[in-house]
Amino acid sequence: MNIRERFDASMQENDRLVLKMMSRVKTLYEAIFDVLKENDIKAAEAIIDGDIEINALEELINEHAYIVILKQCPVASDLRKLVTAIKVANELERIADYAANIAVYIKKTVQNNESYRKLMYIYRDPLVKMLETLLEAYHETDVKKAFDVCDIDNKIDVIYEEQIKKFISITREKTQIVAEEASRALLVIKQLERAGDHLTNIAEHIIFLKTGKHVTLN
């Protein structure tokens, strides 16, 4: 017999909102990489709108969790779930900001930047895979999947280190214009690398949700 129906419904709503926000961020990242691939300035505008919607979802999750804590005095796994939701929403909001920053970069860059965009596109599969895995990890409270996310981030870090070296050599050899382009592209790559870090933070929060222990994975 379920004796806390209203409470359970609130907890389900919490999960629904978190998964919705995560899934929106995943869609946003798939879109931003389409933009990078095609250099589609018009589509970049939609990314910025998408970020605004994600900001609103963060507020909604925070407000909802706050009210449930206030009214239901949750403990144990319920409390961990609500605290985790607030933290995850905060990370997702930041991750979405990075996508919006990249969209702004695309809009500002008029030169032919194809070679750079190719370098950026390398991040697509690992980042989207991280988001997919996190969706499952959160849904199933699966610690193993949370650790898988961390493994992907380690790969991203290796790619990032290599690319940084490449960019530094470009800025040394070429003309001032090229150096400027490379610097801008470098900023984008930095955003993608940071997105990976924040996705790993989400993995850490999921491990807390399951075990009650705070871990540091990156």
């Binding site: 004796i3 403990v75 144990a76 319920d78």
Partner: peptide, 10 residues
């Protein structure tokens, strides 16, 4: 314990 303190007993 979890079931009791979270009110999911019974």
């Amino acid at each position: 314990t979890e079931d009791y303190i979270t009110g999911r007993f019974g």
